[in-house]
């Protein structure tokens, strides 16, 4: 079986469907394959956000830890989902831990390299931002739904 090139793998990612071929050529130059064992930390809170990931296989959790209580899983991400947005916004530090919950394969994109290319080519930057904005808004809506705690016990008690 022939290994696919990063360029081919990027083209398969739904996240990049709105990008142009020339964009993908540029991005491919910033990308590499990455593999994580189950339980391996992909990045940790406070570390520099120098990469983002496109998950190809496996599952990753975003965790937050606080003293005196068990680690909390904020959300899990799986195949074809984007991991990491903090590379977009200064000061470029991770706010959560990302842990591979299973054997996980991903494409790692070098953020420093990407940020440079976006600054040089604002049109590319805009197209990439649009792709990210869609993901971020979608996640925001999910988080709002989570916040509603729809399955919670109704506060007031009555006949029901």
């Amino acid at each position: 079986m022939k290994h696919k090139s990063i360029r081919e793998l990027l083209a398969e990612q739904p996240f990049f469907h709105d990008l142009r071929d020339s964009d993908l050529d540029l991005l491919a130059g910033c990308g590499e394959n990455a593999h994580f064992r189950a339980g391996e930390t992909i990045f940790g809170t406070g570390e520099p956000a120098d990469y983002f990931y496109l998950i190809r296989t496996g599952r990753v959790s975003l965790d937050i830890h606080a003293p005196g209580r068990a680690d909390i899983v904020i959300s899990t991400l799986g195949p074809d989902e984007v991991l990491g947005a903090s590379w977009l916004i200064p000061p470029y530090h991770w706010n959560f831990d990302a842990i591979a919950r299973e054997e996980t394969g991903a494409i790692r994109l070098d953020a420093t390299c990407l940020r440079g290319k976006c600054e040089d080519d604002p049109a590319l930057g805009y197209r990439l931002m649009k792709s990210f904005a869609q993901v971020i808004v979608d996640r925001l809506q999910r988080v709002r739904l989570q916040l509603l705690d729809v399955y919670g016990t109704p506060a007031a008690r009555a006949n029901g």
Partner: peptide, 9 residues
């Protein structure tokens, strides 16, 4: 008020 009560409100 109670006519349409559902799960306490």
């Amino acid at each position: 008020l109670g006519f349409s009560e559902l799960h306490g409100s």
